[in-house]
Design a protein around this nucleic acid. Structure first.
Length: 341
DNA sequence: CGTTTTTGACCCGCGC
DNA sequence: GCGCGGGTCAAAAACG
């Protein structure tokens, strides 16, 4: 057993290394994400229904490992890997966790990073399998994410990020994916008490532009990371909620499923970005377009506060829509269909 | 043919 | 100590 385990580790190591090469190459290119998260107006109306359930679901997540202080055995196990060295470095006390809830039709949110699925499990109390992904952008990147449907509303996708990216992050790795808990706790400290409070992102941003066809409905908006800076601005994301646990500040959840008024879905967004055409449904898109004239929108967010990522976070509205394509462009089975009762 | 996903098995922590 | 459940591994299958 022990010898086989050792062999396992080595194999894993080698495999990871090879993967890393590949990812690095991808890194050079502009990463374009097709995010398939859609905010259906109809589903938006169901948000209220969700509120109770969804909150439960993500609290579940947080309680899973509230005090995950470097899992002893796991940590030791992984210590052999560079991954874990990074992990330890970044989280001396506990793994940072950052959950994002969003309505999404696709199996997983495209957040700008390359993710490799390494497992799937049916968790108790939830008929929908939980997917386990690890960041594939860098071979040593310790970031992992878990993706699971909300048990009460399968249109809601709960993505939990864990760890920090150890790579440069030129990528449009999303703030969510990259900054994890620290960011979230920071955010929460700002929007503290109320769950219904708008998410406020202080930013440096230029007016957003969109390449999407104005006449069509916006299916997604992108969250981009870029290193550029601009004039400060604030984003208000009403009805989104950030929650953290006082007990476990290292994990936080951003709830993007809560929609604004029904008559004007995402009106808040339009108001923030005047150039954004009116749209009725959206997809949440975390994409990476590092240097594009199309999206000079870069926001410096408080997310950067503690994360070591001083890059700016750019929220970019874009018309993207390749549902059922993941980051690699590979066709993904529409899992919802599979889960359909 | 190389890469990614699937999936069953395994490992480990935790509660009883 | 035992069983359960979550998380991970890795061989096989699927995909482009």
């Amino acid at each position: 057993m022990t010898s086989t385990d050792a062999v396992r580790k080595d194999e894993t190591k080698n495999r990871n290394l090879s993967n890393g090469r590949q990812e690095d190459q991808k890194f050079d290119g502009k990463l374009s994400l097709g995010l398939d998260c859609r905010f259906e107006p109809s589903s938006i109306s169901t948000v209220n229904r969700r509120n109770s359930s969804s909150i439960n679901s993500f609290e579940e997540l947080k309680e899973e490992e509230p005090t995950e202080i470097g899992p002893p055995s796991k940590l030791l196990k992984t210590l052999k890997n560079a991954d874990d060295q990074v992990l330890q470095r970044q989280s001396p006390l506990k793994k940072a966790r950052f959950s994002v809830r969003a309505r999404c039709d696709t199996p997983t949110m495209n957040d700008g990073c390359q993710w490799r699925k390494y497992g799937q499990k049916i968790s108790k109390g939830n008929p929908f399998p939980r997917g386990y992904y690890r960041c594939n952008v860098s071979s040593s990147c310790p970031v992992r994410k878990q993706v699971q449907r909300c048990v009460d509303d399968m249109s809601i996708l709960i993505t939990t990020y864990e760890g920090k990216h150890d790579h440069p992050l030129p990528i449009s790795a999303t703030a969510m994916a990259s900054t994890t808990s620290d960011a979230a706790s920071t955010l929460q400290s700002r929007s503290s008490s109320s769950h219904d409070e708008a998410l406020i992102v202080t930013s440096a941003i230029a007016p957003i532009s969109t390449s999407s066809t104005p006449s069509t409905t916006l299916r997604g908006f992108n969250f981009n990371l870029s290193q550029s800076t601009s004039r400060p601005q604030q984003f208000y994301i009403p009805n989104s909620s950030i929650s953290t646990s006082n007990l476990h500040p290292s994990s936080a959840t951003v709830d993007l499923t809560t929609a604004p008024s029904t008559s004007r879905p995402f009106g808040w967004f339009s108001s923030s970005f005047s150039s954004v055409p009116r749209y009725s449904s959206t997809g949440l898109n975390f994409s990476s377009s590092s240097s594009s004239s199309l999206e000079p929108n870069t926001l410096q967010t408080h997310w950067n506060g503690h994360t070591g990522y001083n890059g700016t976070l750019a929220y970019n509205i874009n018309h993207i829509g390749h549902p059922y394509l993941n980051t690699t462009g590979r066709k993904q089975p529409f899992q919802e269909d599979l889960y359909q009762p």
